[in-house]
Design a protein around this nucleic acid. Sequence first.
DNA 1: TCGTTTATGGGATTCAAGTCCCATAACGAC
DNA 2: GTCGTTATGGGACTTGAATCCCATAAACGA
Lengths: 197, 197
Amino acid sequence: MSTVYEESGRTRQKARTRSQLIAATRALIAAGTASPTVEQAAEAASVSRTTGYRYFPSQKALLIAAHPEIQTSSLLPDEPGDDPVTRLDLAIETFIGLVLESEGQQRTMLRLSLESDATDLPLRQGRAIGWFVDALAPLEPRLGKANIHRLAVAIRSAVGIESLVWLTDIAGLSREVGVTRFDGHPRSGASASEGCP
Amino acid sequence: MSTVYEESGRTRQKARTRSQLIAATRALIAAGTASPTVEQAAEAASVSRTTGYRYFPSQKALLIAAHPEIQTSSLLPDEPGDDPVTRLDLAIETFIGLVLESEGQQRTMLRLSLESDATDLPLRQGRAIGWFVDALAPLEPRLGKANIHRLAVAIRSAVGIESLVWLTDIAGLSREVGVTRFDGHPRSGASASEGCP
DNA sequence: TCGTTTATGGGATTCAAGTCCCATAACGAC
DNA sequence: GTCGTTATGGGACTTGAATCCCATAAACGA
């Protein structure tokens, strides 16, 4: 039972096998398997276990490779306006949406980052900070670059996967609560800080 | 090489072996072994591997049992006063101290809670919420019980191990930054919310 | 003291994750 | 087509976690 290749060429073959493995891994994750084995991914991709390990030397490497890349350079729409509150609202709402969309994978990456071995993990580099800095740009004349950055860090710290894990697993909040709080409802506590000055 | 028992009795024997295993596990963790094996704990406790597994059916169970219990019912000193800002300051500072003290174990528990088969984990029950509710008690006439609770949840979400992991590992902040921000420095952003009204 | 209970010890075994080695079939250059 | 290269496949092997079974020695009740 050999796979049918629509293109030939040896270098392409490698790329194809690799992407088949990644696609299979993502499919398994989407189907509910939190951390697919290299063997499971290989079987789902119709390649041998050995080949699976040839491309990804460990389960961890496979999961990292299967982690969805988000390369948006900004979370804002084309015409975000100059009001920092509106801009931040949009950015936070979009960001939370992204996190919730891939919650399973986010959890997996968080777990992997806690395991190790720490020296690896090319992912998890804090792209979100840049997005929030971008959203807060109109405030830069008033707050200065350093404060904007600190504020962005604080916001990301409040709305990322780490907080989501605690708020849902321990505090028992539903995922909807987190979203609606940033949705026109007048800020009263949790998000705070840009309403103060 | 048999251990010398200062007390006899069979039921006590079991309790003693169990606590020896837990003590050994904690010692190993304190000595730098992030996740001691049942076998390692057994050897350190001078009991056989089999006995180790008799008391803790898995490494996970051992680590959960070794997790330090914090049974303080309040994070406030004896005379906390009535000023909610002061009370909250004290509570947060103390809480952060607790988290930093046992950061390694906190990380381990967080990782275990992400590993699932989710159905276990008797720990991680959100005692901190009660502590912060306690600290905020003077505000109850003004805010009401439900809002106090929501505020406590938000605060815990901001200063717990999950946020610490991100702030240090990803954002690259030092652990001191988190402490000093709650230390007399006038709140400017990150903590917010009780300064607003 | 004797027999039973019970906590412990030791070793064989399973199971999953990874590694290694060798065989083979597809590809590409000639 | 032939031959060397290369991606793949299959299976044996290692290691760590965990289970099972049986033996033993100490504790207990009589």
